[in-house]
Design a protein around this nucleic acid. Structure first.
Lengths: 142, 142
DNA sequence: CGTTGCCTTGACGCCGGGGTCAAGGATTAC
DNA sequence: GTAATCCTTGACCCCGGCGTCAAGGCAACG
């Protein structure tokens, strides 16, 4: 099969395939006229790459999986190098998620605070000298 | 104060300040010799920008906060436009965190599966024809 | 006077993962 | 024959947020 068909079957573009080839990730055989030609096993490699890319793996991080498949293993993650990438990625994801969760909470608190401040200003403007801010720690109002 | 001092006091670089100015975010007055000159209020604006940037806000997203401060409000988030950015960012963060959590779980499962497969292969190789895989649903082994 | 150290503008580089021409060759279809 | 698709390589573009020169001006110190 030629590049256009492979691209279509993997749901990507010819440009992407040539890019992968330029990175040494998915080399192609050539026919007499210089056209790239691929077979079903290339489609498997490509699908492996795409799956990992969709997970947010860098292109370089897919390389161990591709090489594992090319070495004849049944799955791209049948090799230690692939497992190592999984583990590293898990760590990165945990770190990133934790960091984002921290930011999320900070932003949520800032929003709360700012909304509260605006509400107080609005109330004060509506009834100038009107309802005092309630003291939530109050005992009996003398 | 001049650009170098402002940069130092905000923990950033002169290049960054010129970049912000080129984006219209932090314009500078000029002295007679063409040097940029800033005052304390500029430092406040800059700190606001930097804080939000550290949270992962795009530069454009800091603009409402800066304009809010420049309009004389006590805080950068004292204006509705800033609150809108907060809310939008919260949504984005939640979506992103959820997505990353999904990927994290998928990767974790893949890792588990792949490790399990390797362990089974190793066991089989160690005692060829040895311990059969246990059938967890078994009744009596006839 | 020279040296050092700040400042100015302008312009290119980087990173990842390709998109998007451009100019030309090969094959197939009619 | 020629039109329509494919294919080839090469090269520039994009994004955001700056880093990093380059070439030259202004100020202060000794």
């Amino acid at each position: 099969m030629r590049i256009g068909e492979l691209a279509a079957r993997a749901g990507t573009t010819t440009r992407t395939l040539r890019y992968y080839e330029s990175r040494g990730l998915l080399p192609a055989r050539r026919t007499g006229n210089g056209y790239r030609t691929y077979d079903e096993s290339d489609l498997r490699l490509l699908r492996q790459i795409r799956t990992l890319q969709d997970f947010g793996f860098d292109l370089e991080e897919t390389r161990p999986f591709v090489e594992c498949l090319r070495a004849g293993h049944p799955e791209g993650d049948s090799c230690p190098a692939s497992l190592a990438v999984y583990r590293r990625k898990l760590g990165e994801l945990d770190a990133l998620i934790g960091q984002l969760a921290g930011v999320r909470d900070t932003v949520a608190r800032q929003l709360q605070r700012a909304e509260q401040a605006r509400a107080e200003l609005a109330a004060e403007a509506e009834v100038p000298g009107g309802p005092e801010p309630v003291c939530e720690l109050g005992g009996d109002p003398w």
